[in-house]
Amino acid sequence: MSDPQRIIAVRHGQSEANLAYRESVGIPLVYEREDHEITLTELGRLQAAALGGFLKSLPEQEAPEVVWCSPYLRALDTWSLAHQVWGAGPLPVRVDARLRDREWGELRHYNLTAIEQRFPEEAARLLAEGEYGYRPPGGESFGDVAVRLRHFLGDLRASAEGRRVLIVAHDSVVLILRHVIEESPDTALAGVHVHAPIMNASVSTWAARDGRLELLAFNEVGHLD
């Protein structure tokens, strides 16, 4: 079993939640929509279209042959819009729950300011444990995300050996996918912050070289200019 020939991992375009959280920095926010229901903003739709333009510009030998997508609406919509602009024929698409965003459990509806006001003990634990070690009540740590992405990557290697793969997912998935592909120990997870934030509709690419996946580009957004 060997690696896919190429992996292109993208984050979805700007979502309504991305915009709401950005506009509420320092202000308590309770965002009541569930994660899987959140759709793209108009800017997010434009970013998805630009992603389609990027895919259209790829040489045939680099263009994706198969697609794996998060089940969340903002990722599915990003793929749909990008595919329309790309103009490629039908591609096999697999929706995989392991590509969902990091789960925040009982804190999923609150921004940091609201957490500090309503759940000060959790805010203190987050501060003490750090963003990459903290597991919210009923949610996931980044280590938990790494575990499911290792299982995903193992299955991807088995089913997409030698093929060119597009993954449409979330910032946490792209960030931790790099950690998993590099086979870094989870004790090093705190260090992944140097590669954040993962931008909306950004592109990260790996290619198979000498029996391993080599990073060619990470978190690239030049196609959005």
Rank of each mutant, 00 (worst) to 15 (best):
E131G: 15
V173S: 06
P28I: 08
G154K: 05
E121A: 11
Q61M: 11
F142K: 05
H109K: 14
L51D: 09
H193F: 00
N219T: 07
L40E: 03
A188Y: 08
G44K: 05
D210W: 09
V194S: 15
R148E: 04
T113A: 15
I115P: 06
A201G: 03
G162H: 04
L46P: 00
R6C: 08
A128G: 12
E182A: 13
H193R: 15
R11P: 03
N111A: 06
L107N: 13
S202Q: 08
A128W: 07
H109C: 12
I176Q: 10
E182H: 01
R125M: 02
L177T: 04
R33I: 00
Q47V: 06
E220P: 00
N219I: 04
S172K: 07
G211F: 00
V147S: 12
N200K: 02
L156C: 06
E131Y: 14
L216D: 01
R148M: 10
Q117S: 13
E131K: 15
L81T: 08
V180F: 09
A17R: 15
R6L: 01
F119A: 10
D225F: 09
E103P: 07
A9D: 00
A128T: 07
H109D: 08
E37F: 00
I27V: 15
E103T: 11
H12M: 01
L46R: 15
E129Q: 12
P59E: 02
D35Y: 05
N200F: 02
D96N: 13
V93L: 12
L91V: 06
A114M: 12
E65M: 09
G26E: 11
W86P: 05
R11W: 03
Q14D: 05
R74D: 01
A97K: 14
E116T: 11
T205H: 13
I7K: 03
A82V: 00
C69V: 04
I115W: 03
V95H: 09
W79C: 11
L149T: 05
D210H: 14
S172Q: 06
N200T: 08
A158E: 08
Y110I: 05
H12P: 00
P92Q: 12
W206F: 09
A207K: 15
L19R: 15
G130P: 04
